[in-house]
Write a protein that binds this DNA or RNA. Structure first.
Length: 648
RNA sequence: GCCGAUGUAGCUCAGUUGGUCAGAGCAGCUGAUUUGUAAUCAGCAGGUCGGGGGUUCGAAUCCCUCCAUCGGCUCCA
């Protein structure tokens, strides 16, 4: 007998060789049916793998992340099996579980492609195979055996995979006539997979390397119940309705024109208003934090970017230089504001007493993003950064960095961005060519960021190799409606540009010293930020930000004059109000304005004229009662105030 | 840039195997209606079916090519 310890510390005895399923069955038959994997001493095991020693165990069903992971990973194998049946000669690379579902990268035989039309038959084949209830069978193999197996099969991808594995740790899993190299764990059998959906097909470079062959990647998802799949698909549809491209069009916030050029957003009046309000909001915060506004042109001499290093790094793959007709000088469209700001710093001598100086600018930059990368407002070729550069003494660095974190957190809090992650992006020491500057400077910069995030108690993730070429950074990531992660706020420490631009300040010792630079953009780019904001709010912006706060709805044209009176009163008090004078019924006007996400609809008819009031209808709530104009103004102002907490 | 898909009026979409197939609803305009909490009625006008080329007696429909968009990959200062 062996001792099994449950998560609640309870210990029970089981015969040697007991499996997760056996243990589950001892609890309930239902659990035995639902168990998909087991943690044995914190290591993920198959639910049917025998346990031969005392162990701490945890049983996983589809309800938790580990269970979902095993379920989807097993489903990837099932999809691969279906594909082998349908596309003989296909070669397999890898098929992991991902956050929502799984994918498998495959190399189809010459001349064959998979497109959307083929999804149904793959799904049908998967379900057909699932119904066979084949066990997922684990088998350990030596490296030689494994290599022999795939060499024999002529599968160079798996041979390559095995090459990177250690002998003695190689396992294979089979279900029915399908065998795959895999670490596991897997479901007890394929019968647990009741519902599958192939979601999309895409090209994916082998090993994520652009220079390698492009494989076919199939994305899918699966569930233990048909109902779960249906619910998931409904959720997906709902998420698509929040797409900022769709809402941006509906609410007339922005547009694109092929004639202007791809990736170059055109802000429509309502969108421009909203953006301006966001900018003013940040300007106010920055004023409190001691930032000074600066303004710089949209182009700069190529030499400027040669100095900064941007030209060497991005020049050839970017918008090409603009030439002056007479002198033949070369100018670049500004891809970054920092070189300009460095030159502003250099425009006069600085004393240690003046530092830090903080130059802020809503600077519009242009970058040649690859054609296939463009995406609504989140990835564009012309965008405006809420940029600022802080030049400080080394001893001020941490404090300054933390103050910027405070600004970002304040903004996220005000706009109700709760689900963000923070990421510390460091250099990849294996690839020094990707970066400029000395090791020593990089070390100092990276340490400064790590100290600051620790001091702020941020829950951060370290991403090696994600640093900018001139310095490490702290990024704030937020997901869009479909779960794609976007970098919004960013704070970067830079010892290198001050060196390249020979920036100096006079120290207490009468000697010249080099300042440190912090690049920061709390929103990141106005375009991307507004895009994510749209998806988070589904277009129902907070009252302080929304283009129109209220629309007056006269019950009939007879009351238009009264409505205009109220309109004047409200607009004079800076309540952004419109009047819907159309010759339509009340129900119609309400519907149309609700669809435009107007927070408050103010109905006026005979009753209101008599009592000199307005009937207020709140978005999503309906009728909230009768107000006088002044009461309503007070009510609105209170709500706005509550949304805009003062900064400390 | 690469893989796959899509592209019909301002918007959302119909258009069966190529043969009155250039349509509908909404938006727009005109008129009637004077409206009480999510769509009043009628009429009118709107498109070289993404661009170009080809096959055919005949192309929105088939082929080629270019462009843009969508989902990924790569990239993201």
């Amino acid at each position: 007998m062996i001792e099994i310890t449950f998560p609640d510390k309870q210990v029970k005895e089981f015969p040697e060789g007991v499996s997760g399923i056996d243990i589950a069955r001892s609890i309930s038959n239902q659990l035995a049916k639902e168990i998909v994997a087991t943690s044995v001493n914190e290591e993920l095991w198959d639910a049917n793998r025998p346990i031969n020693q005392n162990a701490r165990i945890k049983l996983h069903t589809f309800d938790n992340d580990e269970g979902k992971h095993a379920f989807w990973h097993s489903s990837a194998h099932l999809m691969a099996q279906a594909i082998e049946h349908l596309y003989p000669g296909v070669k397999l690379w890898v098929g992991p579980a991902i956050e929502n579902g799984f994918y498998y990268d495959i190399d189809l035989p010459e001349g064959q492609v998979i497109s959307d039309n083929d999804f149904k038959k793959i799904e049908d084949k998967m379900l057909e195979l699932a119904r066979l209830k084949n066990d997922y069978v684990r088998k350990e193999m030596s490296k030689d055996e494994a290599l022999a197996y795939y060499n024999n099969k002529g599968d160079e991808y798996k041979v390559d995979l095995i090459g990177g594995l250690e002998d003695g740790t190689i396992t294979f899993y089979s279900q029915g006539d399908f065998t795959d190299l895999c670490r596991g764990p897997h479901l007890p059998n394929t019968g647990l997979i009741k519902a599958v959906k192939v979601l999309s097909v895409a090209g994916a470079y082998w090993k994520g390397d652009e220079t390698q062959k492009q494989l076919t990647r199939l994305y899918g998802i699966s569930f233990p119940k048909q109902k779960f799949l249906e619910e998931y698909l409904v959720l997906l549809e709902e998420a698509k309705k929040r797409d900022h491209r769709k809402i941006g069009k509906e609410l007339e916030l922005f547009t694109f024109s092929q004639k202007v050029g791809m990736g170059l957003p055109l802000w429509l009046p309502k969108g421009a208003q909203l953006r301006e309000r966001l900018e003013n909001f940040l300007k106010k915060v920055q004023k409190k934090y001691g930032y000074e506004p600066v303004i710089t042109p949209h182009i700069g001499l190529k030499e400027l970017y040669v100095t900064s290093g941007h030209y060497a790094k991005y020049g050839k793959d970017s918008f090409q230089p603009i030439n002056t007709p007479a002198e033949g000088e070369e100018f670049l469209l500004k891809p970054m504001n920092c070189p300009h700001h460095c030159e502003i710093y250099r425009s006069k001598p600085h004393s240690y007493r003046d530092l830090p100086v903080r130059y802020a600018e809503f600077g519009t930059v242009y970058r040649y993003e690859q054609h296939g990368e463009l995406h609504g407002l989140t990835r564009v070729r012309g965008f405006t950064q809420d940029d600022a550069h802080i030049f400080c003494r080394p001893d001020q660095l941490k404090e300054e960095f933390i103050k910027v974190i405070d600004i970002v957190l304040y903004i996220f809090k005000t706009l109700d961005f709760k689900d963000f992650t923070t990421q510390v992006s460091l250099r990849d020491k294996e690839n020094p060519d990707k970066y400029i500057g000395s090791d020593e400077n990089w070390e100092k910069a990276e340490q400064a960021i790590l100290e600051a995030v620790k001091e702020k108690g941020l829950d951060y993730l370290i991403e090696t190799g994600e640093a900018a070429f001139y310095g490490p950074k702290l990024d704030f990531m937020v997901k869009d409606a479909l779960g794609r992660k976007w970098q919004l706020g960013t704070i970067q420490v830079d010892y290198n540009l001050p060196e390249r631009f020979e920036l100096e300040y006079m120290g207490t010792d009468g000697q010249k010293h080099r300042p440190v630079m912090i690049h920061r953009a709390p929103f990141g780019s106005m375009e991307r930020f507004v895009a994510v904001l749209i998806e988070h709010t589904a277009g129902k912006f907070p009252l302080w930000l929304t283009p129109e706060q209220a629309v007056l709805i006269p019950v009939s044209e007879k009351y238009n004059d009264y409505a205009k009176n109220v309109l004047d009163i409200l607009n004079n008090s800076d309540i952004r109000t419109l009047i819907d004078e159309r010759n339509e019924k009340v129900g119609r006007k309400i519907r149309d304005n609700e669809l435009m996400r107007i927070p408050y609809l103010l109905i006026v008819g005979e009753k209101e004229v008599e009592s000199q009031t307005i009937s207020v209808r709140k978005q999503g709530e309906g009728d909230v009662g009768t107000f006088s104009a002044s009461e309503f103004i007070e009510f609105i102002n209170k709500e706005v105030e509550s949304q805009l907490d003062e900064i400390k």
